[in-house]
Design a protein around this nucleic acid. Structure first.
Lengths: 196, 196, 196, 196
DNA sequence: CCCTAAGCGAGACGGTACGTCACGTCTTCCT
DNA sequence: AGGAAGACGTGACGTACCGTCTCGCTTAGGG
């Protein structure tokens, strides 16, 4: 028997205002500049209202970043040519990651995950995990298509691709072109390592 | 006229006490639990004394972590067989990273780097950067030895290896054995991708 | 034209539950520990339901305390001997005031009155005021009976008696016996001051 | 061996600023309007600085009020005529208590004392207690002078005088003249009660 | 039998205050 | 000078209350 909703329902507008405020602070000055107080103030909301929905900074930042990419489509294309598709996709990643804003957001997620063990699983599973799975999926489809060896270590290959991307994003600030060149080189190494 | 040292010289004991206190807090409760106040208190030292030597938490944590691994030798062996050497080395990495303490330290560094853009270069350059360079160096030596193709993208391969390692460390908590298996699979992919 | 009561009538049970909850908090931890939220929670009632009946903490506490003494009879006896009656009555006061619970309740009222000028008149008029009037009344009856001088300052005498009582209650914690001795001494002074 | 003062000494200016801010808030809007935050803000001081010196509102208000009367001399005159001296002194009390400001300060003290049992002893002992003792002292001197009976209950008389004063202050707002008349009547009753 | 009005529990909401912790600076004394 | 001690302004933390509000549900009239 459904108990039904009791009490005043949570305002959707408030939810959005908080996420928008968080994003704004994140983009302006980075993860460490985000504070529950500032978020609340900027969202025109009481501190308690933020805490009522998110227990701490980590999950809030996580949801805010996810929210920012909600519309984005990070699915890999499937034209039949696995490695060409990978190249297309990672070119897009390179482009996305080359804007300061996007890089800052990703780094924020990593900061949140690294800071609090508790948040880590949620965060990585939801963000980088989705990327990893998408890549692995496409690679498996490449196996079926006969372009990749049956005994290739799909997960290891996906780890190498996603790992290299993440590592590069965290380590240096480089131009979109340099980044793209590096990604293409990584793909080449991995492709040669798993193709028939 | 020799300028010499004026005034009371800085105590080496104090330096060590602060580093030890920092490490201890880091291991106990992670990066966010480290505070200059607590470090000073635990080291039996005045706050000012900490600030006199490190401008903020980031560099202090960095030095403390580096100090912890100062004795450790992360150079790759060179037995002549490049890929066997890589395997040996990454087996060691897997082992090191599988203890909770070491994993916590690495994550602390990443948190520091991701949180503060200013600290990023210092931190990653000094830690992961050294690993990356060591691997790249060994791979180049493998090129000379005729085990690796001359046109292989050495940096990309190193990025893939170090990146996969870092990504794995940040994403999941897994047993030493699982970690080792994954690393071996990654090496296999990369090795096949760059070997002659 | 009788307007009549429209809508659901206020529940008497709720009223009592709130008063009981307030008293309970008052006795447990004093005036400052009473909060509308806690009262509502303890009474198993919605916050709004409390506010619908009392505008703020002051009047609520006042009514709760009054409610506690509703049954009690604080009228002075009239056996014909004015001062003997006063002694009897103040012996009872001493006894009542010597239990921690009762002392706490009285102090609560004083706190409410002292804190908020707005509540003061209500509170003191209803509680200490009633005592003062009862004493003054009995003294006037003593005048008629020829035991007290016609030109005696009845109000001043009542102020002295009630004032000394209140002052003692607020200042120190003393045993019932000590309190009683003091009260008897006060009566003696006042009695000698106003008797024929 | 004296350990000596270590560290930066507490600023006297800060101490005074806080007391002045507290007094100002007290006079403006009463005890309940005083908050540690507002006091700090008004004093141009950090919240923490207030907490470093006073654990809570009660003692702070207490010290602020005491500070306000520090210069005042509440000793009873001793001209030889005990009851004339009492009258002189209570006329002064009536005048002091008839200004809204002073009445508010006294009520603040009572509120602080009534609210927190812990503060009570300190407060009443230091404020009303001093008055009580002063009166009792003067009465005893009246005994020596042969104006008061040897077996008179000095403490009870003092309680009656101070109690009536306090009770009147807490109960009603009245003009200086009405107050003075009442006090004179109280003195007359008590005087007649204890004189030879 | 629906209709309107009010009571009621639940809980969201904007505020204000709480008391604590951390940051980085400053002041004092001692070595 | 270095160093220990600790005050200080700033500002975030997470919690507690305040008094108001918005829900859905109940309990009474009145048409």
């Amino acid at each position: 028997m459904s108990k039904g909703r009791r009490g005043r329902p949570r305002s959707e507008a408030v939810h959005l205002a908080i996420l928008r405020a968080t994003l704004s602070l994140l983009l302006e000055s980075g993860y460490s500049a985000v504070s529950m107080d500032k978020v609340a103030a900027l969202a025109g909301v009481a501190t308690q209202t933020v805490y009522r929905r998110w227990p701490s900074k980590g999950p809030l930042v996580a949801e805010a970043v996810m929210h920012a990419y909600e519309q984005s489509d990070f699915t890999l294309p499937d034209t039949g040519d696995t490695f060409a598709d990978l190249r297309t996709w990672m070119r897009m990643l390179a482009e996305v990651g080359s804007t300061a804003e996007n890089a800052a957001l990703i780094r924020s997620l990593v900061a949140a995950a690294a800071e609090d063990l508790h948040d880590r699983d949620t965060l990585s599973a939801q963000l980088t995990g989705r990327f990893h799975d998408a890549v692995a999926e496409r690679l498996r489809s490449g196996v079926s298509a006969g372009q990749i060896r049956e005994d290739a270590a799909i997960n290891a290959a996906a780890d190498a691709l996603i790992g290299a991307t993440l590592y590069h994003l965290l380590s240096v600030t480089s131009s979109a072109q340099e980044t793209e060149e590096l990604y293409m080189a990584v793909i080449e190494v991995v492709a040669r390592g798993i193709s028939k």
